[in-house]
């Protein structure tokens, strides 16, 4: 009981404290790489948290979640191409585009269940991917380079390594807290209840569809916000952001960390990115190692990192 309370509150708190201290570490050891790498990780962590919200709590195995990163990024990139740099325009727009895409594709996908849902979200993800590859005016296959970063009311906060890191950190923290609160609300109970027994939910008068769709749109919107950050971080957007491999990796992050806790997704994102970085340091063919590793994790590593920490 004690340890459960500790891991439920203490672990995420400790995690965020450590993450908040990264720029300090980078400053003391003059390690810019760590700061940039951590920024990238946290952006993925935002996406992974949003995916865990629908996957872990709502059992919606979305295999097209990377599409939102790309859509959010393209919204920012295309606006920049037209010389619109103001974040207060581009960020809400990125989120709105993603919300709309999630609303339309989710409304159709959620009419189906199980494996149909997996395949359909995958297919819609591919649709977004191929659509951007055919945007010849915006670089097509090659992507689009941004010649700068978004502007936040003339502050230039997006340009400093440390300030940008804290923006990303803030978005992650806010996303985590908002979603966490929601999972405990009446809304969250409906999501979790529908996952456990849909027939029971309907018999008490709750049709899970609208609630699932709401969660789906919310997750897409948050992932889109992360995409907008990603465009700024890389100063480049390309269709590769939304390849289905990326969607697969996002699911891996969630499972690797331990799904259905939200902070597990953050741990998973960190672990995945560090693993990728380390393995690819040894060999460019790191997938040769990671592929079998993933299979082993699926077969024998139930509960992910959080499961291991709890020492079940």
């Amino acid at each position: 009981m004690m340890t459960r309370r500790l891991t439920a509150v203490g672990l995420p708190a400790a995690l965020f404290v450590v993450l908040a201290l990264v720029p300090l570490y980078a400053g003391v050891f003059d390690d810019r790489f760590v700061l940039l790498f951590a920024t990238r990780i946290l952006i993925f962590a935002i996406v992974a948290v949003s995916l865990d919200f629908i996957l872990g709590y709502g059992e919606m195995v979305s295999f097209g979640h990377a599409a939102y990163i790309g859509l959010g990024a393209y919204a920012v990139g295309i606006l920049a191409e037209h010389d619109v740099w103001a974040a207060w325009i581009s960020f809400p727009l990125a989120m709105a585009v993603c919300a709309l895409f999630a609303l339309v594709t989710g409304a159709i996908s959620l009419r189906t269940r199980g494996v149909y849902f997996i395949m359909i979200t995958l297919a819609f993800g591919q649709m977004a991917y191929y659509t951007t590859t055919s945007l010849s005016a915006y670089g097509g296959d090659d992507g689009l380079t941004m010649w700068g970063r978004s502007e936040l009311f003339g502050t230039g906060l997006f340009n400093g390594d440390t300030s940008f890191y804290y923006i990303v950190f803030g978005v992650l923290l806010a996303s985590y807290l908002i979603l966490k609160v929601m999972t405990r609300s009446r809304f969250g109970r409906v999501l979790e209840g529908a996952k456990q027994n849909e027939a029971r939910m309907e018999a008490i008068g709750i049709d899970p569809y609208r609630y699932r769709l709401t969660a789906f749109v919310l997750a897409g919107t948050i992932a889109g916000l992360a995409g907008a950050l990603m465009a700024n971080q890389a100063e480049f957007v390309s269709p590769a952001y939304m390849s289905w491999h990326r969607s697969g990796e996002l699911i891996v992050m969630v499972i690797l960390g331990g799904m259905g806790h939200l902070h597990g997704a953050i741990l998973g994102a960190i672990a995945y990115m560090v693993l990728e970085e380390t393995l690819s340091g040894y060999t460019e063919h790191w997938r040769l190692i990671f592929g079998p590793l993933l299979i082993l994790i699926v077969l024998y590593g139930k509960g992910g990192l959080l499961g291991a920490i709890r020492g079940r």
């Binding site: 609160v181 405990r184 609300s185 809304f187 109970r189 409906v190 008068g205 709750i206 609630y211 709401t214």
Partner: peptide
Amino acid sequence: ALAVQAKDGHSFRFFKRA
């Protein structure tokens, strides 16, 4: 409690801890 909450109409209540 979930059945009680269902009777209250919609469950679009996001922030109060159930």
